[in-house]
Amino acid sequence: MKVLLFGIAKDIIGASEFEVPAQPKHPSTVKELKDVLVVLFPEFGTLSSLAIAINSEYAEENALLHSTDEIAIIPPVSGG
């Protein structure tokens, strides 16, 4: 499961893409994916606002994930 990273999410993981480990199991919803990220990278726990897109469509917390989906993590950015 490939995740594309933007903004501060890219800075936290230190790469523009991230392969979510299949073990112990693939996250099946957006909510589960967020939980996995917090476990792997605790700094995600401090982000209160994070948009997730599945195959270029904005996704709600309960949206289902499939292993072939392209997921994007889009934090808000403020700079101008």
Binding site: G7, I8, I74, V77, G79, G80
Partner: peptide
Amino acid sequence: ALHSFEGQ
């Protein structure tokens, strides 16, 4: 809006 090399 901007963040380092990125924009929205």
